[in-house]
Design a protein around this nucleic acid. Structure first.
Lengths: 219, 219
DNA sequence: AATCAGACTGACCGACCGGTCAGTGAATTG
DNA sequence: CAATTCACTGACCGGTCGGTCAGTCTGATT
């Protein structure tokens, strides 16, 4: 075991074969989940021997962890440049973040599916904590933007900012997870393109569903 | 193979052992997914021999299908009694459906996780179609309620009714899937109890996040 | 008493699993 | 040139996988 299972080697120092393994493993794990993928299959698709996979990553668990870690870094990385913005334009910032978040998810779907899969897992493992951290990162950013909007008087202050943030995150994730289902749906026109979905959802969240007559009867 | 793999035996005609197997399999499949569960494990927990599991269900696939089918029926069944309601009270109907939907999910989490797992799968199998149908059932109901609300002038008519339905469904599913994550979150107060979450989300969706000043600047 | 159906079991099967290991061959280094 | 390093491999291991089968036991039918 030459350099197996060393912690978090920067990606660009890996050998060609190791990168191929990482790429194949990412796609397979995202597609079918940890248990449905065998090391044999990964090796075959990466065109290396199975022993070579173990040489580079030590164990199946370690390989999975490496894949997940890369996916998390890629995901939070794509978010890093979509930041800043002054509080007085909180609603615009919110919109930018919301739309680019969905776009980023769709641009690297394997990473996202990997992370969502991990979060859905019930056991509280090291891997789950990693994936949850990505979730928390997005969430915290959204919450602070919403808070800004409330502080500036642009948004109503009566609701919990975390609630809107959660709703926005959920709207994107739910869209992402159900793309294939909504595509076959008769009423699925709203989800035909991500851009349209984003702007329509954002508009609905901001303005609300209620008509402007005084009928405020909820609960 | 005595009565294995017959299609959709009504549950109450199954033997005691078969029911035990079904129950154990449901919990295990929901917890860990198809590939992470072995027939040995199911047999052990159900206190029967592995051969007996095959006697009753023929194959692992068939057992999984039986479990999934039962879960789908249970889920749409819990929805069946929450129906009707005249169109003029569309908003109230919407609220009732929304709140009881979340409550129903939390009452039979194994079934829900089974279905969500199946929907998340990429391959378009027979099982996926089954699970998607449950999704479609809920969705269609919601859409028609929203349409009613729009026809009655209670809700704004400018947005796609399917969009609000989708958002509501997503809000509940997202809450369900991320219960364990939000519980550890500092800003997770909004998700402390399902009842509070339901009513707060519903209120926010109806009234919108924007404050009432004329600042309508979105896009 | 004889027959039959069906729930149930232990022993077994070939295939495949994750993982190991001794070794090969091509660069790098002294 | 010798020594070292390291990506890489084929052969192999014990164990578990989904699945089969011959047969046992029990209770109802005739």
């Amino acid at each position: 075991m030459a350099q197996a299972s060393q912690k978090s080697t920067p990606v660009h120092t890996l050998s060609e074969g190791a990168l191929a393994i990482l790429g194949v493993a990412k796609q397979l794990f995202a597609d079918k989940g940890f248990d449905a993928v065998s090391m044999n299959e990964i090796a075959r698709q990466a065109r290396v021997s199975k022993a070579n996979v173990f040489h580079h990553f030590g164990s199946k668990e370690a390989l999975y962890l490496a894949v997940l870690k890369a996916a998390c870094e890629e995901t939070v990385g794509s978010l890093a440049d979509t930041q800043a913005g002054d509080p007085s334009a909180a609603v615009d910032n919110l919109w930018n973040f919301f739309a680019s978040h969905l776009a980023a998810m769709l641009k690297s779907p394997d990473s996202v599916r990997l992370i969502l899969r991990e979060i859905a897992e019930s056991e509280e493992s090291r891997e789950q904590a990693l994936a949850s951290q990505v979730f928390a990162d997005y969430f915290t950013r959204l919450v602070s933007m919403v808070s800004d909007g409330q502080a500036q008087g642009l948004l109503r202050a009566e609701f919990d900012p975390a609630l809107l943030a959660f709703l926005m995150l959920g709207a994107n994730v739910f869209f992402f997870e159900n793309r294939s289902v909504t595509a076959h749906l008769a009423e699925g026109g709203f989800a035909r393109t991500p851009a349209r979905y984003s702007s329509d959802v954002f508009d609905l969240l901001l303005r609300g569903a209620l008509s402007d007559v005084k009928g405020r009867k909820n609960q």
